[in-house]
């Protein structure tokens, strides 16, 4: 229990521990997620490019529960080059059901205009169940659009949810134009895995 609380504390309060100055104010994002295990709507606000805080309303299909997560994501590391960007993020959240229902995670990505790779690791602790989600994702852009164009990514995602058996690997299509992003994947076992995002 102690190690879980420490993990939560580190992730939620990492911005303060790192003492990063707030250099940017403004961005907020609305997201919708839907897959065979849950549907959710997530809104977050970024006081700086280093972290965001938000609220996620979840319809958990596995436990047949509804709850709200208070969430925080922290940019742990970023490397910019002319042709690429790499990011590592920490995330954590606490549910409206109490401290015993929470998650911690780490995810990262590396991308160029042509190639994308990403990973994620998330552990969820609930009163009735604890589980982990792991994913790996690779993608390629079939064409390089200019700023403002419709951008398309062809991706392959491998995902493991310890509540289910084994890994699932399935194709994902990602589109974005302007402030709108849509990601849709389909696996016969998991069915649809979709993600819609609008950045204000």
């Amino acid at each position: 229990m102690g190690i879980r609380l420490l993990g939560l504390f580190l992730c939620l309060f990492a911005p303060m521990l790192a003492a990063r100055p707030i250099s940017y104010s403004g961005g907020s994002t609305l997201m919708g997620f839907s897959n065979s295990m849950q549907d959710s709507i997530y809104y977050h606000y970024s006081p700086s490019y280093r972290y965001s805080v938000g609220i996620e309303v979840v319809n958990d299909k596995y436990t047949d529960q509804n709850y709200v997560y208070g969430r925080s994501t922290y940019l742990l590391d970023r490397q910019n080059t002319q042709h690429s960007q790499r990011n590592v993020y920490l995330q954590a959240g606490v549910s409206s059901h109490g401290l015993n229902h929470h998650f911690v995670g780490i995810h990262g990505d590396w991308e160029t205009r042509r190639w994308f790779s990403g990973f994620g690791l998330k552990h969820v602790q609930n009163k009735s169940v604890q589980y982990s989600e792991t994913f790996l994702q690779l993608g390629v852009a079939p064409y390089l659009g200019d700023y403002g164009d419709l951008h398309t990514w062809l991706m392959l995602k491998s995902k493991k949810d310890t509540r289910l058996l084994g890994w699932s690997t399935y194709p994902v299509l990602k589109f974005f134009k302007g402030n709108l992003l849509l990601e849709v994947g389909y696996d016969p076992k998991l069915e649809w895995d979709s993600h819609l995002m609008y950045r204000f």
Partner: peptide, 26 residues
């Protein structure tokens, strides 16, 4: 599962110390 959480926390420390030591390392 505690191993997983411990791994996340260790990674947090490792990456965090890099980020704190070189906040503008980009």
């Amino acid at each position: 599962m505690q191993h997983l959480q411990a791994l996340i926390i260790l990674l947090s420390f490792a990456w965090g110390s890099v980020a704190i030591a070189a906040p503008d390392h980009t």
